[in-house]
Amino acid sequence: MVAVAARKPTDPAQVRDAVLAVEAWLRDETMPQPSRAELAAAVRMTARSLEQLAPGNSVEVRVPPFVAVQCIEGPRHTRGTPPNVVEASPREWLLLAAGLEDFDDALAAGRLNASGHRAPAIADLLPIVPVGRGSRA
């Protein structure tokens, strides 16, 4: 068995800064899209924060093309397609992570895919970096 080095914990201030860097675009899709580097940083940091917040291997959260993390305690998945998956676009994931979108609303509208009985547990962990629905944080 090959040992995998543990990831360095995310710095909450850096995660918040990364989300704030893309906040204007999250609030108004007509604003210029952030650079790929800004988008990738915000997506990866928020997903890895979720991974740290709820360690485990029973739910896989995918935000292609930037990141996939496993979280939430429960049965470990090792091969093939995981039974519990949440998948979102980078923008949709960041809307959820920032508290600007509700998990159930996104799921009902088809902006988010969730499969398996453990996948909805992600909703209880959101938002990761709340910026609020009203004025800027």
Rank of each mutant, 00 (worst) to 15 (best):
A68K: 08
D102W: 05
E51Q: 15
P75D: 13
L112H: 08
L100Q: 09
A109C: 06
L95F: 02
H117A: 15
L125M: 11
H117C: 11
R118T: 03
L107T: 01
R62G: 00
P64G: 04
E73A: 15
A98P: 12
A108M: 10
Q70V: 04
G99D: 01
L125T: 09
A114G: 10
P65C: 03
S58C: 07
G74A: 09
A121S: 15
E73Q: 14
L96I: 05
G116I: 12
P120Q: 08
P75E: 14
N57G: 14
P127A: 10
V67P: 07
L53M: 12
F66E: 02
H77W: 14
H117Y: 13
A123C: 11
D102K: 13
V85E: 05
A108D: 10
E60I: 06
A119G: 12
E51C: 12
V67K: 02
G110C: 06
N57D: 09
L107E: 01
E87R: 15
D105H: 14
R79D: 08
A121T: 12
G80H: 05
A121C: 11
P65H: 03
V86M: 07
N84G: 08
A108Q: 11
A68L: 05
L53A: 09
E101D: 10
A119C: 12
V61A: 00
V59I: 05
F103K: 09
R62S: 03
S115V: 14
N84Q: 06
A106N: 07
N84L: 09
G74V: 08
T78F: 12
A119V: 11
A98N: 06
A121K: 15
D102G: 12
A97R: 06
A109E: 12
W93C: 07
N113G: 13
C71Y: 00
A109V: 03
R62V: 01
F103V: 07
I72D: 01
G116N: 11
P130Y: 09
P75W: 03
E101V: 05
A68N: 04
I122K: 03
R48P: 03
F103M: 08
L53C: 00
Q52Y: 00
L125R: 11
I72L: 11
D124A: 15
P75S: 13
P65S: 01
R76N: 05
L50Q: 02
A121P: 12
G80S: 04
E87A: 14
T81I: 13
E87P: 11
L94P: 10
G80Q: 04
A123T: 07
L53Q: 13
S49V: 02
D105Y: 10
R118Q: 13
R111F: 04
E87S: 15
A54M: 00
R76G: 05
G99Y: 00
G80D: 02
P82Y: 04
L126P: 14
P83R: 13
G80M: 06
L50I: 05
V86G: 07
N113Q: 14
L94A: 04
H117D: 14
E92W: 02
V129E: 10
L94F: 02
R118D: 10
P82D: 04
L107V: 01
I122W: 02
R62D: 00
A68Q: 07
E92R: 13
T78I: 13
V63M: 02
P82T: 04
G56F: 01
T81M: 13
